[in-house]
Amino acid sequence: MDTGKKDFLLEVDGLKKSFGDRVVLAGVGLAVRRGSVFTVLGPSGAGKSVFLKCLAGVVQPDAGTIRFDGQLLSGGPGSRAGFHRRCSFLFQSNALFDSLTALENVALPLEQTTDLTNHEIRERSLEALRQLEIENHGGHFPGQLSGGMQKRLALARAIVTRPELVFFDEPTAGLDPLRRNAVFAMIAKYQRQFGFTALIVTHDVTEALLASDRVALLAQGRIGFEGTPDEFSASGHPVVGGFRDSAGALGTSLAAIRRGDAILSDDA
């Protein structure tokens, strides 16, 4: 039992969060195995980002427990100090510092949270840029880089502290299908290279199924399904089916629109 527990880097139980009368998380629970890629799927507005921000300590949950490497995170700044040093967060918007160069962006977490010398910080930052293949852009500001390079820069900043856990908040939001594939491939590649545990929230089902070890479906504030990508594909769960069959539903709707007899529902 203990050995099983130690396999899990992150354990969440009964996580609840409401904004006024709107219940976003109604008791979410899951466990993420060390060194795995775990993806939380869900439609837009399902509360995936809120869930991730609760885990990262950016949003305070109303109830529930979060355990990181067996340690309970109570939510207070003290209890999370060690947690922040061992995890990173990759934002949907990248959240890069636009007044700092790429190299300075990557160096920032090392400068502020470690006792490394300036030389060591520079070497580690350059190494991270090299690993993400953007070493030639260290002197550029984020605004001067393409969308894909900005994403890689954000990942370089996330991994430079050598975290054990990286949170990915909608890493492919707003990207075209080719770039979406490239981002998931990048996450899978660097996850293998650096060995961190990845917790991804996304609504890109196809790519997530290919890149993940386990997936969970967040709908109506709860985990509606959890299992391997194969189990997900074979699942008969109604919410899973609806999510998986959305392409089929789109085809039906479009056919009806072309026939001229369709009335779009509120869900559309």
Binding site: R80, H84, S88, S93, A95, F97, D98, L108, Q112, T113
Partner: peptide, 19 residues
């Protein structure tokens, strides 16, 4: 500057780094 940093989640990013 701080308003834009707040809007673009730069301030939240600092907090998640433990800064």
């Amino acid at each position: 500057e701080l308003g834009i940093q707040r809007n673009s989640e730069q301030i939240v990013a600092l907090e998640t780094m433990g800064v």
